[in-house]
Design a protein around this nucleic acid. Sequence first.
DNA 1: GTGAAAGCGCTAACAA
DNA 2: TTGTTAGCGCTTTCAC
Lengths: 347, 347
Amino acid sequence: MSKKKVTLKEIAQRTGVSLGTVHRAIYGKSGISEETRKRILEEVERSNYQVDEAASVLKRSAKRVVVVLPKAQKEDRFYFRGLWRGIRQAAQGMEQYKIYFQFIESDYPLSQMYKELERVYDEQLEEINGLITIADSEKTNVWIGRFAKRGVSTVLLSSYYEEENQLVSCIKVDHKRCGALAAEFMNYGLKKPEGKIMMLCGDNQLYSNRIYALNFEKEMENYGYDILKVEGFGRDEIEEVCSSYLETEKIQGIFMSNARNTYSICKMLEEKKMGKDILVVGTDVYEELAPYFEQGIVNAVICQYHWDQGSHAVQKMHEYLSRGVREQQDKTLPPVLLMKSNFECFL
Amino acid sequence: MSKKKVTLKEIAQRTGVSLGTVHRAIYGKSGISEETRKRILEEVERSNYQVDEAASVLKRSAKRVVVVLPKAQKEDRFYFRGLWRGIRQAAQGMEQYKIYFQFIESDYPLSQMYKELERVYDEQLEEINGLITIADSEKTNVWIGRFAKRGVSTVLLSSYYEEENQLVSCIKVDHKRCGALAAEFMNYGLKKPEGKIMMLCGDNQLYSNRIYALNFEKEMENYGYDILKVEGFGRDEIEEVCSSYLETEKIQGIFMSNARNTYSICKMLEEKKMGKDILVVGTDVYEELAPYFEQGIVNAVICQYHWDQGSHAVQKMHEYLSRGVREQQDKTLPPVLLMKSNFECFL
DNA sequence: GTGAAAGCGCTAACAA
DNA sequence: TTGTTAGCGCTTTCAC
């Protein structure tokens, strides 16, 4: 059943070189001629050799990875708390692989993450083997490219980094499906287009918000609903318009494409003592939503698996750093719809 | 950040014994006096020593675990295919820990699994360190107890094994929540109790089916719906009653508490060219359901994460066998509702 | 009942 | 550019 594993030693014998040389070939280290490297790698390929991680970790030097993300505070708390938890939890298990994490909970908002990256680059580039962060602006992408160029493996969360770079990979959520799912549920809950749907499309600068909301809108129009679009990110930006819509229009459904607007709307509905006869579908799951599920103010949320995103990112970093995996392979997580009966399981 | 790890050697020095003796103490092996064991374990505790798995696996002998489950065939295919996939996938990764799997895809049905276990017990008990299987009958439980008594670590899938046994743990699904979730969705989709709900409660002998259906029923009655209960497991057993209900009653919703009835009902509805105006909520997700989602015959399914159950089982076995974890800690997976927009992600 | 010693397969440092 | 070597922390076997 388990065919005996090929070892470094065997490769060395078959190619007539020493252990050290095979090691250099496999890890792309310097101090070896292109010719021998090629010959060795061919044998590695042929015999399907795989590094034995247990043996490898025993002797190798420690790897350091920094995690740079906004701190889970204020309105950022809904989104980043889950990510941070997933990352920290998964990171604990990495000590056994001699992979050590440094967590930088930045006070900069998402749009200025590049400033934090710049600081890290200047201050500790030399000591870093891996980087986990989130990219949504051009400026941030530039810095990520710089890290990659210096050999730092990078995993991006909820990001859309388009450059072809072997050292960068992304964990994404299928935002097209997120929109379709929200619309599908809303249509089940409403059945007939009798009033209007208020749609909080979030921050148009954020790729994720844009795709997500766009798809929801498209699907709902297909079903025949009338959409009232509200732009803005956070209560300050949406309150005025929403208030006026809620008071003057006949709203039968509300959709929010991100966590902070979900919370803001719930709060507004509670204050106005409205919402029990409006179908409310939000995004993301977090403790602060519990009372609104209980009261029936929010009916469902699309869950983007922040926790999982975080732990996947750590997992991927492990592959990069340990097994020397170098295929840039993005991971897309599926969306899921949670309701009162099961949202608690995902906190 | 990473306080230096305590090693076996240090424990040995501090207690004034040799490496071998500490090892014997930790793993409960024979050839050591109770007194020294106690002294050593105290030091282990005090210094918070943890076995270094990388080093441990390098030298230790191979472990074997057998997986005994019904083959994914005929009407069993919906349920067991996912489990098998999850297990096989996760098992691959275990070779690096010198844990090797043997897969026994039994031709016996679930209710007679004990016969297969009996055979394995007689033929290869000595070579086995771990067992993954599923228990739903008293007889099966008896055999599992026997394995446990002989020191075989056991992980049970979707089972309710009640004995207090340090060597047995279960992976479960929260069936109460499953029922509540199905009911919650159905209520959203129907809004008003105008017709009747046909409920396929499955095999009453199966604990999971029973709890699940019971909870669905309770919730639906709370909402004010009228339930038509149909017992039976598989098309042969349910066709007659269902047909007659479909033809004579005004059915506005159908619920199925297991995979095979979900498929049977979909097929029946297709043949009768019915279902597009009935809200159909089933259980489990598998390829054969795709056309029924496309056609709008089935509207949602409660997903029991078979794939995840399988990989969790393997994970738990790893903990048992490698880290010597001995707390019997059951794992309960949350239910999730899938619709047309996202079911494909879970195939 | 206990200790001593030989590696497991690999990495990193040093020697040639 | 290549070879040699000393362990990493543990498990196992054998000797006492």
